[in-house]
Amino acid sequence: MSIMKAIVLNEKPEEVILFLTKNELGISFPQLDGLYNRASWAHVTDNMGLFNLVKSMCDAGFIKYSGGGIVRGPNWREPAFMVEGKYTLD
């Protein structure tokens, strides 16, 4: 199992989205949707559940839409699993 799939399966979706938006490139919603689709919608019900989560995180300022993608917002924070050093990322 890949590290990314393990993160999606084991971590809260909010934390995963924070991780995916840690750099200025961020992630597009179709890429995020595909990631959760391949993981059988772990921790989210479906793409509308994921959309609603992204919207609530945008409303809270953790992330924002920019240039067709989702990037870190003014209230972005480092995901807990990164602070803990839970995964080895190359």
Rank of each mutant, 00 (worst) to 15 (best):
Met1Phe: 06
Met1Pro: 01
Met1Cys: 02
Ser2Asn: 07
Ile3Arg: 05
Met4Pro: 00
Ile7Asn: 00
Val8Leu: 03
Val8Phe: 00
Asn10Gln: 11
Pro13Ile: 08
Pro13Arg: 11
Ile17Gly: 04
Leu18Ser: 00
Thr21Ala: 12
Thr21Asn: 10
Thr21Pro: 02
Leu25Ala: 14
Ser28Glu: 03
Pro30Trp: 10
Leu32Glu: 02
Leu32Thr: 05
Asp33Val: 05
Gly34Tyr: 10
Leu35Val: 04
Leu35His: 05
Tyr36Asp: 04
Asn37Asp: 14
Asn37Cys: 13
Arg38Ser: 14
Arg38Trp: 10
Ser40Val: 11
Ser40Tyr: 13
Trp41Ile: 06
Ala42Phe: 06
His43Thr: 08
Val44Leu: 10
Thr45Lys: 15
Thr45Ile: 13
Asp46Gly: 09
Asn47Met: 13
Met48Ser: 14
Phe51Ser: 12
Phe51Trp: 14
Asn52Leu: 15
Leu53Gln: 04
Val54Met: 03
Ser56Phe: 06
Ser56Val: 07
Asp59Thr: 15
Ala60Asn: 13
Ala60Lys: 14
Gly61Phe: 07
Ile63His: 05
Tyr65Phe: 15
Ser66Thr: 05
Gly68Ser: 09
Gly68Pro: 08
Gly69Ile: 09
Val71Met: 09
Arg72Val: 01
Pro74Asp: 09
Pro74Val: 12
Arg77Asn: 05
Glu78Trp: 02
Glu78Phe: 02
Pro79Met: 01
Ala80Glu: 07
Met82Thr: 00
Val83Ser: 03
Val83Arg: 01
Lys86Cys: 04
Lys86Ile: 04
Lys86Ala: 07
Tyr87Asn: 03
Thr88Trp: 12
